[in-house]
Design a protein around this nucleic acid. Structure first.
Length: 122
RNA sequence: AUUGUUAUGCAGACAAUCGCAUCAAUUUUGAUGAGGAAAGUCCGAGCAUCAAGAGAACUGGGUGCCGAUUAACGAUCGGUGGAGGCGACUCUAAGACUAGUGCAACAGAAAUAAACCGCCGUAAAAGGUAAGGAUGGAAAGGUGGUGUAAGAGACCACCGCUUAGUUAGAGAUAACUGAGGCUCUGUAAACUCCACCUGAUGCAAGGUCAAAAGGGCAUAUGUGCUUGUUCUCUCACGCCCUGAAUGAACCGCUUGAACUUAUUGGCAACAAUAAGUCUAGAUAGAUGAUUGUCUAAUACAGAACUCGGCUUAUAGCAUAACUGACCGC
RNA sequence: GCAGAGAUGGCCGAGCGGUUUAAGGCGCACGCUUGGAAAGCGUGUGAGGUAAAAAGCCUCCGCAGGUUCGAAUCCUGUUCUCUGCG
């Protein structure tokens, strides 16, 4: 019974960044990658899993627009398996990213994470 | 067929695959999962804390035609008066400047008070007068007549104002009759007066884990307190810091002035009764992606303690009642 | 989520019912001064529309209504900006 619970917990690891501290740390120390509508901050971490946070300023739109964008970002990251272990990320939206369609966002994000991959290999 | 006016409803549905949150089961399944405004935070409540309570005076804040509804309200409904529209109908912070005070620039002779021009009068003055002129947002009730030296509510008719009575009404008020002859400029979203209401802070409230031990201040003619100020009385005997953290978890957290349907009462807001239902509860914060079918399906927009309103944003479709103009009979 | 403050010429900033929208400073333009500059002194200077130009007229104190004879100022709604609360 206990083993099962343990396994269950192991499957459900929290991949979210939660604390303001963590966000500030990554904003300061992270390696930055830019596209037209998004910034990616990446920092290597001592943990084996990854964590990712999404940052959308209030200037980008009203609450429901921001919510929609965040959900789409989460969906794209999950579906394309863009994120690698041992890293912490922040995805920041800018310049009217809420106006983009799903496919446009997907295109930009894949390119962004490609840059990150190339940088890592060097 | 057209033109408006008012009211109401919907705010996509179904299926498949992958994915999220909560709760059940339990080992891979099932159920449920944002709005009409969830928004603005403009009002009113519940709930919590300020050790507890009673009372008085002053101050501050709010509301302001009448009646009803409501847990309550600055909300709602039905009326009255006023304003707009040919009309259906819509809008209305609408007590009192005859308690007192303030303000009213410029213009104008004069701004709450009277005479510049004028008119009458006369030899000329004195004197009488406020019709006409000019200014202004406002100029001494208005229009027409009688009257007169010229004029004037001096007198008359109509209209307006103030006021008394009668009738109708629950009342605001309305209608009628009489009186005053008009004394009384506007402004209270100026101070103020009158009537009524009103403690403060907001779930980031607040509580549990949270105790030991140590330290400081005060120790009754004292301290504390009812969170705008002061006072009276009852009352309590302690308060603060370290421990104790830029911490985690849990509670608060969703069954409620709840929702749906029916009946009854009421013009209506709404209320009562009966039956049925349980319907988000996250905490970097749960609803997305792809595809198909139907369709007018697009807009504004995302719960964060919970309710009742108000205000603002909003595509398209549908329904009902009524208004005007035109055509036909 | 809750609570509070503000918005005035190109910039800062006073004014809080009254006369032509606006004190003062910075800035800008021109002149004086100087061999030349800086500093100093003096004069002028908001924007848009109308207009050939000048003069004049109209609109503008975040935006939209209302009260008032009259609103940058008072009241209501709204938009944006900023601050505090664990």
């Amino acid at each position: 019974m206990e083993e099962k619970n343990y396994q269950h917990n192991k499957i459900k690891i929290d991949h979210r960044l939660k604390k303001n501290k963590q966000f500030n740390y990554i904003f300061r120390k992270g390696i930055k990658y830019h596209s037209k509508n998004f910034n990616l901050y990446a920092v290597s971490s001592k943990f084996k899993t990854y964590k990712i946070g999404y940052s959308i300023s209030k200037k980008e739109g009203k609450a429901n627009k921001r919510n929609l964008l965040r959900r789409r970002l989460k969906e794209i990251v999950r579906k394309n398996q863009l994120v690698k272990d041992n890293y912490n990320y922040i995805l920041q939206a800018k310049n009217g990213a809420t106006l983009l369609t799903y496919s446009e966002i997907e295109h930009q994000l894949i390119n962004l994470f490609k840059k990150h991959e190339e940088n890592k290999s060097f």
